[in-house]
Design a protein around this nucleic acid. Structure first.
Length: 471
RNA sequence: GGCGGCAUAGCCAAGUGGUAAGGCAGAGGACUGCAAAUCCUUUAUCCCCAGUUCGAAUCUGGGUGCCGCCUCCA
């Protein structure tokens, strides 16, 4: 059994075999840093972070590269609007990106290259394309010559003619073919620029990903991912640029996530129907947002709504309750350790195998979550129905949850506890229990209500009172 | 015009030939001082029609509806 991925290049599921055994070179298109990213942008960040984690869980060494597009029309426009430099704008929103991405539990990439820091690599790639006759200069601009690259359209699965017939591209007389695209843009007044063999200018959007991905991962990448809207033309162009230059296959597995919709429409900045990740994080814990993203297959569209997020929140609470019950049992219940370890080992081994089977099948996180919840039920039932707990069960269950959560991150076991006020809470609980003993329910309920108002929820169990923070 | 996706219970969502995972919500019950949590029970024949098959949500054909890409966009 091993991972099978849906490859957009072939439009079929294929067994995943990396170029170098045991190692995966993974490039994921990152944000243009002109604004906060929204919850739709967050989908690929979360989903491909989980794929990356799963590859690592599966034993691969993963080099994960995600770029920052820090020079581009939108960057320039926004910087001008705000009266700051493009660099200042980029620095600010890279910082904001990390704040939100970290809060969402997205692990840091191995490399986060910026376009403006790779101008020499970009120019070198363009020069190579010009030399090989795949690009041509025109008044300080350089265009890629799609007519020179017969397999243009591999990802779109359309011929040049077919692509052109539906195209809404602006007429540009300097282009040989309407679909030729900019590799280098001549400087305009008030724009940042760099010297180049074609004069002062700046790189086009598509070229940065080809240049930077190959710099960090070599001429052939194992996985390249992004939103499905990038398939054409961005990724198509990346393929053309890289393969025209190197003559080697650029990417072995192209994977694209489906859109996040809101009111059945694509969430996007231009439509104005977006919710920033930051705003979402104020309303919902990261765990709930992650679980929401993972509750459907990554290639399906998902519809964002308050109701969906609330459902995910409910699900997360179920996971958390199970975990905290487990912890509580470990501290407060009688345990023994006779014999039955093997039985529990195979129980959790089976759950893990099923988790692996789900994830191996084109990264089916929805099915994987199903397995996780079945394990939750098993643990809950065991805790409820067993008088004297077997230590190995508690250990193995905790280990199972930790492992799964190292991939999915929906339990937040990585996050620091931060229970500095624990002592005070414990004291109040003791006071409340004393009141309960004296049947002073007025007093006991008052304490419980006060704590609830602070976001501390109490549960009375046969093994004493348990408390937790509201999710 | 070309390319592609989707349609499963009140909601979200797996499942691609053998008689429908999981979550949320709801109802009933157990437990509780009351709660909370948990457990038990309960809620679907898979958009429609026609085929293939011993057998289809799952394959084929035809409909209907929704959505995306071909332009910046995760």
């Amino acid at each position: 059994m091993s991972l099978v991925l849906y490859n957009d290049l072939t439009r079929t599921k294929e067994p995943f075999v990396p170029l170098k055994e045991g190692h995966v070179g993974f490039y994921s298109c990152g944000p243009t840093v002109y604004d906060f990213f929204h919850i739709g942008n967050a989908r690929p960040f979360i989903v491909f972070d989980v794929l990356r984690r799963y590859l690592e869980y599966s034993g691969y060494k993963v080099t994960f590269v995600q770029n920052f597009t820090d020079i581009e029309d939108k960057m320039i426009n926004r910087a001008n609007q705000e009266g700051i430099t493009v660099k200042q704008l980029a620095d600010r929103f890279i910082e904001e990106y990390f704040k939100d991405a970290d809060a969402l539990g997205i692990r840091r990439a191995t490399h986060n290259p910026k376009a403006t820091e790779h101008i020499p690599e970009i120019i070198a790639l363009i020069e190579k394309l010009v030399e090989k006759g795949h690009a041509y200069a025109a008044d300080g601009d350089v265009f890629f010559d799609v007519g020179s690259f017969p397999s243009y359209g591999v990802l779109a699965k359309q011929s040049l003619e077919e692509l052109q017939s539906g195209a809404r591209v602006e007429i540009n007389e300097r282009k040989r073919h309407p679909l030729d695209f900019s590799l280098w843009k001549a400087k305009k007044e008030g724009e940042p620029s760099w010297p180049s063999p074609w004069g002062e200018g700046r790189p086009g959007w598509h070229i940065e990903c080809s240049a930077m991905s190959m710099k960090y991962l070599g001429e052939t990448l194992d996985i390249h991912s992004g939103g499905t809207d990038l398939t054409f033309p961005h990724h198509e162009n990346e393929v053309a640029q890289a393969e025209a230059a190197t003559g080697k296959p650029f990417v072995r597995y192209w994977i694209h996530n489906g859109y996040l919709l809101i009111d059945k429409e694509k969430m996007s900045k231009s439509l104005g129907n977006f919710l920033t990740a930051r705003a979402a994080l104020q309303k919902y814990p990261a765990k709930a947002i992650r679980l929401f993203m993972l509750s459907a297959h990554y290639r399906s569209p998902i519809n964002f709504s308050e109701e969906s997020l609330n459902q995910s929140l409910g699900a997360v609470e179920r996971l958390e309750n199970c975990w905290s019950d487990l912890e509580h049992a470990r501290k407060n219940r009688k345990t023994t350790s006779d014999g039955s370890r093997n039985e529990f080992e195979s129980l959790f081994k089976e759950f893990e195998d099923r988790f692996i089977t789900a994830m191996d099948d084109d990264f089916n996180t929805a099915a994987a979550l199903g397995v996780l919840f079945e394990a939750v039920k098993t643990v809950n039932t065991y805790l409820k129905e067993t008088q004297t707990l077997e230590e190995s069960f508690l250990e193995l269950a905790a280990e199972f949850f930790r492992k799964i959560d190292s991939v999915l991150g929906v339990l937040g076991l990585d996050a620091a506890a931060g229970e500095e006020d624990a002592a005070e809470i414990e004291a109040l609980i003791a006071e409340r229990n004393a009141a309960r003993k004296n049947k002073d329910f007025k007093r006991s309920d008052a304490i419980r209500d006060d704590l609830a108002a602070r976001g501390i929820l109490l549960e009375d169990t046969p093994d004493g009172t348990k408390w937790k923070k509201k999710a």
